[in-house]
């Protein structure tokens, strides 16, 4: 019955243990989608979002099982509960999709994103950037006399906060990977 292996939500009547879909509130959910790493599978997932008018806040994908040729796609999306349930069901019926997990519903998760941040400047600003980087535990991965490139790992909020702080200090370029996420605990 529970093809998507989602944990039981708050309603007893449900196809995928759906939560009530009446609400109009916009929620943000992190979905983990395990797929066969075959040609075009990412296009299928992205095409589903664009074709049906869903939002993608962030998306990461890489092969996680080289022998089984499986990839894990982590999607952060926003929508009403009804839209989120539709997204999960629509993802679930894509043929090369093995499993869809709604990490947001399933319990506490670890979410991390990696960013590379280039800050150009000199004098006090340069010192201040380095000091703040230390507070955020960002690593310097490249430097010139007039610039630093920091590597920062953390939640998207943390990266947002750091980038905001770097803006007046000479933020030149920012590259982010998008969110990778796992549920906490042993399973």
């Amino acid at each position: 019955m529970n093809a998507l292996k989602l944990k039981k939500g708050s309603t007893s009547h449900s196809a995928y243990n759906l939560r009530p879909t009446f609400s109009d509130t916009i929620e943000q959910h992190t979905l983990a989608v395990v797929v066969d790493n075959e040609a075009g599978v990412l296009a299928r997932v992205i095409g589903l979002f664009s074709g049906r008018g869903y939002n993608i806040e962030s998306l990461t994908v890489a092969e996680v099982d080289h022998t089984g040729k499986r990839s894990r796609i982590t999607i952060v999306t926003r929508g009403t509960p009804q839209v989120i349930e539709q997204i999960k069901a629509q993802l679930g019926r894509i043929v090369p999709v093995h499993q869809v997990n709604d990490l947001t519903v399933e319990g506490p998760t670890v979410e991390r994103e990696l960013a590379l941040i280039k800050v150009a400047g000199d004098g006090d600003k340069r010192v201040e950037a380095l000091r703040l980087a230390d507070i955020f535990r960002a690593k310097v991965v490249d430097s010139t006399l007039t610039s630093f490139t920091f590597e920062l790992t953390g939640t998207p909020d943390k990266i947002d906060a750091f980038a905001e702080l770097m803006r007046p200090l000479g933020l030149a370029e920012l590259a982010r990977t998008g969110v990778a996420a796992l549920s906490r605990g042993e399973s």
Partner: peptide, 11 residues
């Protein structure tokens, strides 16, 4: 098809 359920009308 699970995606047909609760797509338009809540059941």
């Amino acid at each position: 098809d699970p995606s047909s359920i609760n797509k338009i009308i809540h059941v």
